[in-house]
Design a protein around this nucleic acid. Structure first.
Lengths: 145, 145
DNA sequence: AGAATAGATTATAAGAATTACAAACAAAGA
DNA sequence: TCTTTGTTTGTAATTCTTATAATCTATTCT
């Protein structure tokens, strides 16, 4: 399920008769290289040079394909546009309320939460999502000046 | 910070020169009475009878006022429109991937997560958000038939 | 190889949620 | 009462995302 490398992601796709196109490869590549959890538009803009004719629809289409294949995750915060992230390992995000900066945060799984939720609610739990909000060091410094 | 009752919410607002209007009262009332985490449009529609002239903009404006005052929380899931929730106590949400049903789930605070995140990232942590996803009993039953 | 088929991309239009803005309104204070 | 501040309303504008149809590309089958 977790696809650590770009190659893994590609082979996951191959196994579900999804063709590997240059655009798809570029989007995946960008997602893997980027540490910044980009929006669809970020991706579109950053590939504009290499693919002058690429449509925004292609970005959205493929992000959905990747999501369905389980190699990419969609993150919805308050700020209107979704952000996308390769699924690599179990980590959470710490988000700055001021500047929006996102920092990865590793934390031993919250499996017990899922187990408990299953017992209490009767749901079949599949996943969970945890985010932590605060002020990043830079913004804290700024506000104290 | 936590406003358990409608009255508390009202007095929090009074203390920050925010006027209490009939529309605002109705929105708060609805949020408190509703267990369903409504969207802005849900709120708008449900108050249509009592306030035939109310504008959608009013709903959005006031939800933001409430958010800024810290008595209402915005929840963004994948599905385009935000949902709103009174801040009452520390509980989390279990969400059905099939039908979207949301069930409250009480869980002893994840304070340690915040503490750890503070140490690791240098952020000043203020808040966190946890959601749990799965399939509710009804949908599970359906899919097994 | 050539034809048929399935899948992908592109461009554009449409849709939905949210925000911006200006005008009209209401309340509080001097 | 007059002024000021804050609120609502209605509408237009913006933004993100999806739908659609046409074109293009790759794969498969004969």
């Amino acid at each position: 399920m977790a696809s650590a490398s770009l190659q893994e992601a590609v082979s996951v796709l191959k196994s579900t008769n999804v063709r590997m196109t240059p655009q798809r490869h570029a989007i995946l590549e960008f997602l893997h290289s980027s540490m910044s959890h980009p929006t669809a538009d970020d991706i579109y803009k950053s590939l504009e040079e290499r693919f002058p004719n690429m449509s925004v629809a292609t970005v959205y289409n493929n992000l959905r394909v990747f999501k369905d294949a389980g190699i990419v995750k969609e993150l919805t915060y308050g700020d209107s546009s979704s952000r996308f992230d390769c699924i690599t390992s179990d980590h959470y995000h710490v988000i700055c309320n001021d500047c929006g900066k996102i920092v990865d945060f590793h934390y031993p799984g919250l499996d017990e939460v899922e187990t408990l939720a299953e017992h209490v609610t009767g749901f079949e739990i599949e996943d969970h999502r945890l985010e932590i909000y605060g002020t990043c060091p830079a913004c804290t410094k700024m506000s104290k000046q």
